[in-house]
Design a binder for these strands. Sequence first.
RNA 1: GGCUGGUUGCCCGAGUGGCCAAAGGGAGCAGACUGUAAAUCUGCCGGCUCAGCCUACGUAGGUUCGAACCCUACACCAGCCA
Length: 423
Amino acid sequence: MTVTDIVDELRWRGLIALSTDEDALRKAFADGPVTFYCGFDPTAPSLHLGNLVQILTMRRIQQAGNLPLGLVGGATGLIGDPKPTAERVLNDRETVGAWVERVGAQVERYLDFEGPYAARMVNNLDWTSELSAIDLLRDIGKYFRVNSMMAKEAVARRLNSDAGISYTEFSYQVLQGNDFLELYRRYGCTLQTGGSDQWGNLTAGTDLIRKAEGKSAHALAVPLLVKADGTKFGKTETGTVWLDPELTTPYAFYQFWLNTSDADVSNFLRVFSFRSKQEIEELERDSAERPAGRIGQRALAEELTTLVHGADQYERAVAASKALFGQGDLGDLDAATLASALAEVPTATVTELAPIADLLVAVGLSASRSAARRTLKEGGAYLNNAKVADEDAVPASADLLHGRWLVLRRGKRNLAAVELQAS
RNA sequence: GGCUGGUUGCCCGAGUGGCCAAAGGGAGCAGACUGUAAAUCUGCCGGCUCAGCCUACGUAGGUUCGAACCCUACACCAGCCA
């Protein structure tokens, strides 16, 4: 990375939604390594692409010569930050504890723990669990004014909704504010980054540090990523795109990026890619000139799949995609190629040839037989890449590829395999 | 503890005794057009042994020939009062 101003860099990439005094922040970066933190609450067994934006932003700031603290919210995960619409359901302590481990391990992957700017992982349960109610109310609570707590957007929205807000969630900002103060005291941490929906919680910390320590700290909010059509980023037909390969296979992960719409490519490249500004601008130009080549999508899919899942997994995803989406006849693929391609796709094993409607269900392409029949009726079902319109169609043994596989597809890009096992 | 309002399909939300598997919107799915893109248009969108049947409108019971709709109890959510 060049020595250009990291703030300029982040701004160019569209990664700054809000910040406290930007000039002061620039100066802090210029004056030497800044210790900064970003927190991740264990609300699920894995982080997802939305979280990856935050992680990669940390990585960028570290690469610019600063010291990251990766915080896992062992404590805040037990409380839950206020969602705009409704109160959260509390997860039990064992569950959160297990998720802390997994989430922490995911964050670690992207930070560098060696060298002069070595990262460090922390868990806010370490200092929050030993905080007594009295300590919390006397030492921290006094610095929080209820009026400004209620003015925070996340809280205000809930106060104005008929869902209301519990004291538990209302207090979330106190805990997060205290985290920042604690990290300031322990490690001299003076910057917190996070999603723009966290702005109120970020500033809770800077305010607390100012009041408790008389020092100013910085907050930087990364915009919530939305697609060009205004919908949420990071979702597919099957739901959230997770970082954990058990929850979202590398193949599905690769496919997600490959399917990025043209309108989003430029934006996503800037947010996710570690290529240089020059390289990205070149990709943007190429994509604009020849969108059908999907150069930008391929670049994103390659870089991100490799970063998150490794080069081997990337190669496998590409090979499988090529085989399954290729122009050629599936029957022309040799058994080994077909077998490894189908390994990337949901599979069911059967002992005899059942009607296609049943197979669609067995393989998970359709939620029910009714849905499967509907798909067939609508002409959305394919056997070995050939459309099947008959609701009651049953595959013949001649349809079996290499004597054992059937490739089923629903719509354009939902593939699955059926393997016939001689009984 | 009291009072009031609420609990409808993935989400929002209409529906106040039969014409209700339940309006409308959103999300989603498929087809056409394309580039495994977007937009657009068309169709679909509880389940099944699919022109019929079953299950569903917080839970349990009741009234009725018939209930998402009426009654009772309970649970949960919210608001107001104490």
